[in-house]
Design a protein around this nucleic acid. Sequence first.
DNA 1: TATGTAAAAATGAATGTTCATTCACTTTTT
DNA 2: AAAAAGTGAATGAACATTCATTTTTACATA
Lengths: 193, 193
Amino acid sequence: MAKLQKSIDKRNALIKATIELVNNNGFHAAPMSKIAKMANVSPATIYLYFENKQDLVNKTYIEVKAKYTQYAFATYNDRLTVEEGFEAIWKRIADFKCKDSENAMFLAQCDNTPIIDETSRQEGIKHLQPLLDLWERGKSKGIIKPISNYILYAYTINPLSFLMMADKRNGFQLDKTHIEMAYQAAWDSIRVN
Amino acid sequence: MAKLQKSIDKRNALIKATIELVNNNGFHAAPMSKIAKMANVSPATIYLYFENKQDLVNKTYIEVKAKYTQYAFATYNDRLTVEEGFEAIWKRIADFKCKDSENAMFLAQCDNTPIIDETSRQEGIKHLQPLLDLWERGKSKGIIKPISNYILYAYTINPLSFLMMADKRNGFQLDKTHIEMAYQAAWDSIRVN
DNA sequence: TATGTAAAAATGAATGTTCATTCACTTTTT
DNA sequence: AAAAAGTGAATGAACATTCATTTTTACATA
């Protein structure tokens, strides 16, 4: 137990350090030596947990993505109405982006650059299925516009990434009021009038 | 003339090579040697045109951003109604993202990572003023929802980046029909009912 | 409970490579 | 023929990864 526990701690520390360094400096300025130092570990130790740098970043991505989707769907179940379900998922995602912005920023960077493998990217997308199912339900009931899931995603979930980045970088405050306004915009963009 | 002409060609070739390599491999895998080779130039020549790698990327970003905003506002003038003006700008931006996706992808990557200086980022934002002015006009006339410009941007312009990426990466086709649907979603999300 | 020891985990210091940048020199332009 | 532009090869630093060694752990035995 002690041994296993210690190992998981080191692994977590490495993943945390990776996220922090990639967020602040970018992949190109996140050397293994710095990651090791930030995780209080020898550079050589990283290779006990991960094959190489690419593997470290891929695994970090998948892990963060899993945490994200788990959080997103925690309050959702398919007994909810389409509108209730959508609001539940959307607000959880908004919540995640606000409260866990370190992780959210890392995902945003991975999703917009070629730093992770295509395979790992695909792996990360899988977990989104419940939302796609909900949208299909909404479309078949005539509640949600009959348009591509890509567009639905682009106009509801994706804007949250932009708003989170704006919050982190500029003077914009992604607070309760703005979240509520953003939710209205999201829903207005996809609902059938 | 001959001399100046030649210089501009080299500079353009360097910028083009930078965009292509950063798009395909990411900043971390776009070495100066490859950029030089792709531009048919000696590595040393890059330093006649740019201070260093950071400067090359910053300048590339600013140049591409300028091209982008120039294209975006080419058909706009403030005599248009709010709705006409918005549609004009939005569709030009959509057009740019479709037709010049190399440049658009480069901007998306820069806007979501720390590869360019904060100063250069600010520089790039300046040119967006006409759109912000249009939005203020729309808000004061009660045509556009009275919400932060960040949210307006997040729900109208930013989704286009996501859709373009989806088009480049997955099977999604950002064609005329989808553009039209996306425009409706964009307008529905910000207009007052 | 204390002790010895083999396996596992961890390490700091190499290693070899890649890279950004510079330099001494050549070619082109004026 | 002086100045400007361009070059390929050199330079030194930074990096990912490996290696030889040390430390820690697990646990059998007394």
